[in-house]
Structures are given as structure tokens and as C-alpha cells.
Amino acid sequence: MANIAVRDRAAFATTSRPRGSAREFFRQKSTVAFFFTLPLILLIAILVIYPAFYSVYLAMLSKRMDRFVGWSNFTFLFTRETFWMVVKQSCIFAITAVIFKAIIGFIVAHLVHAIPNEGQRKWRGMLLVPWVIPPALSTLAWLWLFDPSYSAFNYVIVALGGDPIPWTGHALWARFSVILVNIWIGAPFFMIMYLAALKSVPAELYEVAAIDGATWLQKLWYITLPMMRNIIAITTLFSLIVTFANFDIVRILTAGGPIDQTHVFATWAFKLGIEGGDIPLGASISLFMVPILTVAAIFILRDINKRGERI
């Protein structure tokens, strides 16, 4: 006790020394905090926030970037049929994929949760593998599985007496294929999140419900879903952002084809902006992702804060 008091006095003595000493300045809390966060602030400001606004400016330039043209890039896009196709396809792609990822993740999480604890680790480990492999590389495997002439799926289908399927050759099937691959990669993420949520539901709730004679559907509806509500919302919204902005899968599997039918915003922006050399047009295309991303981000933030308050 006395010791602390002495130290305190010593500390007081040092802080009351005349300011201006550099050593003192660097020990102050605000100074230290400033230097600790400075690299983070610089990184975000220069490489995230600045380019985000810069892309709005870029989107208002002419193709050769020598003239300011206002909104005409956007109005030009509105007149193009491909643009509306991309809008539609991006929405179909993201919404369908997220719904199926959420449902499959939910079912698989319940299956893993249903088996004895000792075995869960092993199954969880196997089921998460699609999420661990770099998407660009696993999509290559899918590309080969969907190969027009050597498709391993078609081999099975033909062996069973069916007709070969044009997995990436026909617009409808190509749309199905990119969604399927996205589900394959993303469903494990939902599974892991839901499994963590399931584990946090107190077992007593189910016991009480069982005593009251609740059916499994009632247990699901009145206990599991309300308890998992927040995690379901956050995971779904987060996945919606990632899926909506997806690039790797479509780029490798179909490169937007056949005839631009599977392009999403990111791949079309890449095709026109980087490959086609029309940076302003590419920037304006990718900006169309912002509204949906903003809405999703607002909801995520709300849910996360709510979660923080409850804990």
C-alpha cells in the first residue's frame, strides 16, 4: 500500500515536470493512441476511402479520361440491354445463392449438432473444406467437372441413360452452374456460424419444451429460430454483400458467357474497365453495387450493435 503511494507520488512528480520535453510527449496517452492508430487511419484513408470517392469522379469522365461528362456514363448504361441483364443476373445470383447457402447451412448445422460430441469435430472439419480452398482454384475443379466434352457429371448422367447437360454452354444452365459453385463454397460458412449459434442455445429450454410436449417443429419455431435470429441475420447480410460482389467464380467458370448472360457487376466492370480499357465505364458499373451494399451494411451494423448491447 505504502509502496503504491510512493510510486504514485513519483509518477505525479514526473508528470508535473515542465511540458515540452519530447519524452513526456511520447508517453502521453493521446499521443500514444494517435501513433498506434495512425497506420490504420492512413491505410483506410488512402487505399479505401479515397479510391471509393475517386471512383465516383472517374465514373464521370469520358472514355479517354480527358473530359468531364457528368452523368452520361450512367445514362449510357441505362440504354444498354446488357446492363439490365447484368442487374438482373447479379440479383438472381446473389439472392438465390444466399437463400440456398442459408438453408443448406442450417440443415447441415443441425445434422452436425445432432450427432455425439466426439464425432462433431471430424465432420465439421470435412464439411468446411470448400471454404478453405482458394475459390479461384476450386472453381477450376468445377470448370473441369463441367467441361463440355469431358464432363465427369455428364459421364454419370449418360451412363444412367440421360442426355449430357451443357453446364456452361447454355445460358440457363450456366446461371445454375455459377450459383451451384457459389453455394458449394459458401454453405460451409453458414454451417459454422449456425453451429456456433446452436451451441449457445441453453439445453434447458429444449428440456422444458419437451416436458410441455412441444413437437420438433414448435421447438424449432419458438426456441431455435428466435435464439439464432441475430446470427442468422448477420450471416445472411454479410454473405449477401460478399455474394453480390463476387468475382472469382463467374470469371473462371463462364467469364460472363455465353453471350454475357452470366455477367455480374464485378466481372462486367472488369471486362469493360480493365480488359476493355474504359476505366470510367468500369467504375460506373461497379458503383451500382453501392446501394445494395449500403443497405446490407446498415442492417449489419444495427444487428451488431444490438448484439453488443445485449451482452
Partner: peptide, 30 residues
């Protein structure tokens, strides 16, 4: 170290995490 703006900065960090790279690659390239 609670300092002026630390709460906003923490939220900002999280929001930055939600910005996909597909939105930034063209302006960064330029």
C-alpha cells in the same frame, strides 16, 4: 485507450471490412 473519435473509428474499421475489393480495383488501378 478511449480517445476522441475512437468509437467512430472502430465502427469505421468494421464498415471498411464490408467494402468489397470489386468496388475498389478500378479506382486503385487508375
Amino acid at each position: 485507450m478511449k480517445f476522441w473519435g475512437s468509437g467512430i473509428l472502430a465502427t469505421g474499421v468494421f464498415l471498411t471490412y464490408l467494402i468489397p475489393e470489386t468496388l475498389l480495383f478500378i479506382p486503385l488501378f487508375k
